[in-house]
Design a binder for these strands. Structure first.
Lengths: 183, 183
DNA sequence: CGCCAATATGCAACCTTTTGCACAGTGAGC
DNA sequence: GCTCACTGTGCAAAAGGTTGCATATTGGCG
């Protein structure tokens, strides 16, 4: 289970509140381990209880108070240890492919539309990836070690995305040859 | 949630028992929606209660009795309806990438080993995919409609797998440039 | 006969994730 | 003053999934 570690990863460099964390997630580790703000708040409590995070209420000008979380030494140690553990192969779960097992003349149009939507969604995702890449990882060879790891994760996202677009095109071409049912 | 529908998909062509289903899963829909036998047995009960499956105890020679499940008309209707619904984009969750966010000299060797293991695992998976492809989907254009859908799912698996292997090689090359810490 | 492996089904406890809701402070605009 | 949007935190219930155990039949091997 990686959520607590994904959260601590986000806190490696910056102290953050739950709200900030939830937003930062959308453009960093969260790209590889998504979760909702409810889950994040809950997990932050657990991590603080375990002594891996420390928290402090901070007053802000023009905004409600926030609770700032800081990674403790114990937290850093736990992270280092976790990385050295076994990680299980993540098996895919995507109902799009289950639906494809049920392809028929009746639903070919619908599935075509779903794949188009997925394609569109992935294009946006790739646009985000490329923006991050250009901004922070233009020259990967010169990066410090940790950032090289982040770059590799980003690269995996980019490659997967590009591959998915190509598959969508193949799939759409094939689905285009299926005739609609006569009414 | 697609588990019930993945199960019904597996029962589209053949009636099966929970045990047979669990095994069939490993080489068909289960490739895209994995689940444990416990979950399958549980779900079969629910589906039978809902009237989407019918069950019958069957005596066997040389083996314990089994409970054979058959898709009902209601079940088929529910499937057809489900395919036409919205399916949400499946966000990836893989701790390998979270771990890469924590790359350091201390864990580079470990992560190299993990990626190698993943690569090996994916090679085996691809071998299975290719075996299925050669055996059943050598000439996709001539397939009946439903089988074309299955082929497209298979193709997605193959493409994703090949892309992953290529990424592993890139990652391993980059990790190879990181020096071990001096003891 | 005893033991193991394969076939076959299932419960119960637990953990994780999702869903829907609730509350409260602040600034901007009407 | 009212409403809206954004910031900020959280609970509670339900659904989904994992882990570990329990049980029973049959056939094969030593």
């Amino acid at each position: 289970m990686a959520l607590p570690h994904a959260i601590m990863t986000a806190l490696l460099e910056d102290d953050m509140s739950g709200y900030e964390l939830a937003k930062a997630f959308d453009v960093s580790v969260g790209l590889f381990w998504r979760s909702s703000h409810q889950q994040i708040y809950q997990e932050l409590h657990k991590l603080a209880d375990r002594g891996w995070l420390q928290c402090a209420t901070v007053a802000q000008a023009g905004k409600p108070d926030k609770i700032l979380y800081t990674l403790t030494e114990e937290g850093r140690d736990a992270m280092a240890e976790w990385v050295l553990g076994e990680s299980r192969v993540q098996e895919g779960k995507d109902d799009l492919y289950v639906k494809l097992y049920n392809l028929s003349e009746d639903n070919a149009n619908h599935l075509t539309a779903e794949i188009s939507r997925r394609r569109e969604h992935m294009m946006q995702r790739l646009y985000l990836y490329e923006k991050i890449r250009r901004r922070h990882y233009a020259n990967p060879v010169s990066l410090p070690v940790r950032r090289k790891g982040v770059f590799l994760a980003l690269l995996a996202g980019i490659r997967q995305g590009e591959q998915f677009l190509a598959w969508c095109d193949e799939a759409l071409a094939m689905l285009g040859t299926i005739d609609e049912p006569v009414e």
